[in-house]
Design a binder for these strands. Sequence first.
DNA 1: TAATGCAGTTAGAATCATTCTAATTCTAAA
DNA 2: TTTAGAATTAGAATGATTCTAACTGCATTA
Lengths: 150, 150
Amino acid sequence: MPPPTPRNPAKPSGLDCRLAVLGSDVRLTPHRREVFDVLAGSTDHPTAYEILDRVKSRSPHISLATVYNCLDHLTSAGLIKLVHLERGQSRYCANLHEHVHFHCEKCGKVIDAHPAADFDPGKFWNLPAGTKIARTDLAIHGTCSACAAK
Amino acid sequence: MPPPTPRNPAKPSGLDCRLAVLGSDVRLTPHRREVFDVLAGSTDHPTAYEILDRVKSRSPHISLATVYNCLDHLTSAGLIKLVHLERGQSRYCANLHEHVHFHCEKCGKVIDAHPAADFDPGKFWNLPAGTKIARTDLAIHGTCSACAAK
DNA sequence: TAATGCAGTTAGAATCATTCTAATTCTAAA
DNA sequence: TTTAGAATTAGAATGATTCTAACTGCATTA
Ligand SMILES: [Mn+2]
Ligand SMILES: [Mn+2]
Ligand SMILES: [Zn+2]
Ligand SMILES: [Zn+2]
């Protein structure tokens, strides 16, 4: 007889292909997948509540608690990023390339901006020796070109 | 008889010397002054509640609402800065020099880091033409040297 | 197949930070 | 001294997020 397959609920097959690609070990359940797809299809850095609204068109019974659960799992798996721009609701971003956020103080728009090729944030800040950088969160606030033109 | 001095409650004399120096037009009342002094004497980026605790040793009857009011006035006057590092409580900073925040993910410490002399954040991010930068908020997350040594 | 175990999902309650409200006190001009 | 406006206060209200406890569904195990 064949030896029994060891049980390993953390690595199922099937739907979870995207996870293996990115080296993550979160299970991509249908809801997590929908939350991820909605965010990956958005460029406006939606809030949890906005994501709930968008996912509802496909899964009308999903709850806000599940959206938060999915966002937390996806964030700790490194599939998406959490963005804090101001007091109030957090925003989320599926752009994993190194980038920063420009926040227009007039219309509220949040757009991605990408660094010049030679940018190295560790070079420009006088941090004590031995400090290890895990990630940088830069938000640039100002007026977008559309608002500045008015 | 001398002509009556025109009334101008927004620009009183006396306690408010520090304001004139910085070109601000907020009245520096005793509570605002205490909140400012506590923050100026701190390097750890305290929260509103931590500031309340520290101010209470001088003014035992000050309320949290007043601390929030004072912090809002001082922030909009440009005397202090509001810092968002993560979900939850906001933090405040009285260091007005251009700098960024390093946040140790192990011990929670927040330290200031100052830019190299030639640093220009506008140069490194490909923002659309016409965009006007008002301010940048950069948080660097990682492990401080003390924690890294453990 | 039936029992088990565990992760996912859910609604609603609880918590926490912040803002608002309405009453009171203070300050400085008139 | 009177008055107007700002500051201060306690407590209520709000809003975002997290927690709790019950339930669901799938996959393993007997
Ligand atoms: Mn982004
Ligand atoms: Mn600082
Ligand atoms: Zn704009
Ligand atoms: Zn540390």
